[in-house]
């Protein structure tokens, strides 16, 4: 199983932390590449965090309205599908 951390992105050199505005997914939800997972805000700029791959949300680690540092953990997701031949 490959789990991936979703973290607070750095939107600019001056950014040290951001606010999680809301989740667009719940724990257990499946998502596809390009789906919006969350919205964050830093310095009057909103940014949508988009899924870079298909997967399932395992754990939401940050609550809406709270601040998180750049690279701080927001959620843990599982990459799907886990089919095919595993390397090794």
């Amino acid at each position: 199983m490959s789990s991936v951390n979703i973290t607070m992105p750095k939107l600019g050199e001056a950014m040290t932390e951001g606010i999680l505005l809301r989740w667009h997914v719940n724990e257990g939800d499946a998502f596809h590449e390009g789906d919006i997972l969350a919205e964050i805000e830093a310095d009057k700029a909103n940014m949508e965090i988009e899924a870079q791959f298909d997967g399932v949300v395992m754990k939401l680690c940050a609550a809406p309205g709270g601040a998180a540092p750049v690279d701080g953990l927001l959620a843990i997701v599982r990459r799907e599908p886990e089919t095919g031949v595993e390397p090794g």
């Binding site: 939107l11 600019g12 050199e13 001056a14 950014m15 310095d43 700029a45």
Partner: peptide, 9 residues
Amino acid sequence: MKPDIHEFI
């Protein structure tokens, strides 16, 4: 130069 929201603002 990298994309930078704050420099844009």
